[in-house]
């Protein structure tokens, strides 16, 4: 933060900045939304339990999905902003949040995989070890352009449509169109581009402990870089 913010009022206060009363939008009395919230929680819980009795995993996915969406909405966590804001505003707070989340999930997934490996069980998630190559970078670049223009990545778009930002139904529609097209033609892409690149599973290359150490070191390095970048940018903006 800059050193000139001593007269900045705390978030949400009113009346600190003088503004002509004519421009102040007339406030409608707000209805309490708590009854709707309780009703919705009951419906969500009911559907979750119903799904869980049919198939436990289905119910589990329902609740984890709900929890993920809730946290995403309440924290304004946005993967798009985490990669866009450093360039646009110099803010890296979300970048650091995403890196922290990556570090925590890395540890969690590592623990799950390693415990399976130590017990001699098949390592879960091997189906997600996919070839890495030029196609990854080209795809990431196109995805990056798309998510900045449409105002959200996949989870962000879903969350904002749910929140009531109707314009992004447009993004959601074409997100589905694109997904369907890519799913329909995936075999061709796989045959001609994807399978020509190598698959890399870090523990195979670096050993189990080497893999987690290297991964956390890279994330830690990026976190420090993001922190320094954010501070440098914030300082230069303020002067």
């Amino acid at each position: 933060m800059s050193d000139t913010t001593e007269n900045t009022p705390a978030t949400g206060t009113t009346g600190g900045i003088r503004r002509s009363s004519s421009s102040r939008a007339s406030k409608k009395p707000k209805k309490s939304t708590i009854p709707y919230g309780i009703l919705l929680a009951l419906v969500i819980g009911g559907i979750g339990v119903a799904l869980g009795t049919v198939n436990f995993t289905l119910g589990f996915f329902w609740f984890t999905g709900m929890a993920f969406g809730f946290i995403l909405q309440k924290t304004r966590f946005c993967f798009t902003a985490s990669l866009r804001d450093p360039y646009l505003t110099g803010s890296t707070s979300l970048t650091k949040a995403v890196l922290t989340a990556l570090a925590i999930t890395s540890l969690g997934f590592w623990a799950i995989m390693y415990s399976a490996h130590a017990k001699g069980l098949p390592i879960p998630g091997q189906g997600f070890v996919v070839p890495f190559g030029v196609h990854t970078m080209v795809g990431a670049f196109i995805f990056g352009i798309g998510m900045v223009i449409s105002g959200g990545c996949a989870s962000g778009t879903l969350m904002r449509v749910g929140e009531g930002f109707l314009m992004q139904i447009l993004s959601l529609t074409f997100f589905i169109v694109g997904s369907v097209l890519s799913a329909a033609t995936f075999g061709w892409w796989q045959l001609n581009f994807i399978n020509q690149s190598p698959k890399v599973f870090l523990p195979d290359v670096l050993g189990w402990f080497g893999a987690i150490v290297v991964q956390l070191l890279i994330i830690g390095f990026l976190w420090i870089a993001a922190d320094k970048y954010g501070k440098a940018k914030g300082a230069s903006d303020a002067h």
């Binding site: 933060m1 800059s2 900045t8």
Partner: peptide, 20 residues
């Protein structure tokens, strides 16, 4: 747009302006 609720005030405060 809820996302702008975060980045507009954050940018303006960072730049040293008064924000409400």
């Amino acid at each position: 747009h809820s996302c702008a609720m975060k980045n507009v005030p954050e940018w303006a405060r960072e730049a040293g302006h008064n924000v409400e």
